[in-house]
Simulated assay, not measured.
Amino acid sequence: MSQQNIDVYAPLPFKSKQDAQKTTVSLSSTAPFAPSFVIASLTQSSDPTGIYTSRIKGRTMLLENPARDSRLKKEMERKTELKKQEKERKKLGIVGRRKRQERGIWKFDPKLIKYVNVSYFFEVDSGLDRYSQLLPLHHLWMGYMSELLGLPAPPAGSIRPESIGANAPSSSSMHPKLLKADFHGAVLTVKQSKNSSLIGLSGILIHETENAFKLVTTKDKVKLIPKENSIFTFTVPAYSTLPATFQPGMPYPLPGSQPEPSPSLFTPSPTQTVLDVPHLMFELYGNQFRFRSSERAGRKFKHKESIEL
């Protein structure tokens, strides 16, 4: 059988325009392509026109699956966006710190010390009586604790020391609130620390950072105490220090802003602290407390055993 020789370099056969017009299918509005094709394809159905009308007519039909981004690509885009946000956050932090230094926010007039935020009291001259000027802040904090923990009103007469704990709220209800509370104005004491020179230091908290507490002691000294490897104690009043007429949403009363009440063993005077009245003492583990106060407010803490000093 003879083989036919084919020239692979020969030009492709050209189809004339007239031949192309003969093979072209012409469609009209009376017989569009999609319904005609679907109805003709449903050869096994007894009513192809009815199936087309009920299931296909008037609906959007996808001729092919849309392209989807791969999971790896989405993960890379997410990481890139997170890095960009972190870079912007650091940039804003540097700019904000520079603006604070230029505006002198960390410095203030000693004459206005009683009326300004005392959280950064360490800029004031050492000749001032710092501790006594911080007592109003401490009394505000006691009022804040009285409302936050729902402390009971002080009794009218005397009370036995062993019954103080029985009248206080349960520890299970106080602990979650204390974890998220603001401690500026509280009296903190270093109970244990790997640095033995810090043990026993006590003072009013004026500034809390992520890793340290800044205290003003009774000797008007400013001490920066690291949270790491330290155990602190703080006290809250056993009974509410707010007046009986106080309502939620009202400003906390300051010493001297209201008529002087009758002397009471359960309410501190303007020159006293929470340590001079019946109080409840709590321990604060610094290693588990290394968060900013704003982060603690929205953080969920899990109960777990702690091995400390």
Rank of each mutant, 00 (worst) to 15 (best):
H207V: 00
P251K: 13
Y285H: 13
G203Q: 01
G203I: 00
K194I: 07
R299K: 15
F289V: 01
T235A: 10
D182N: 13
E260W: 01
S230L: 01
T241R: 04
E295S: 14
M281S: 15
L179V: 00
D220L: 06
L280N: 02
L198P: 02
L178I: 06
E283F: 05
A186D: 12
L284H: 09
L224C: 04
A212E: 12
Y239F: 15
G256T: 09
G256L: 10
L284T: 05
I206G: 13
G203E: 04
F266G: 07
S202F: 07
N287E: 10
Q272A: 13
T267A: 07
T218Q: 15
K223S: 00
S196C: 04
L188I: 06
L179I: 00
K194Q: 12
L254S: 14
P255G: 08
T233F: 00
A244N: 11
S193E: 01
K177R: 14
N229S: 12
N195D: 14
S293M: 14
S269C: 08
F266K: 07
S262W: 07
L198E: 05
V216S: 15
S240K: 02
P226V: 01
F234C: 01
K194L: 12
L242H: 03
H184A: 03
P270S: 12
L215A: 11
K219R: 14
G200P: 09
M281Q: 15
L242I: 08
S196T: 13
I206C: 14
L215Q: 06
K214M: 09
H279F: 08
L198I: 03
K223V: 00
L178T: 02
T271Y: 13
Q247S: 14
T267G: 02
T189V: 10
L242P: 05
N229W: 05
G200C: 09
S172T: 08
S193Q: 03
M174H: 02
T267L: 15
K223P: 00
L188D: 04
S173P: 02
Y285I: 03
P243T: 05
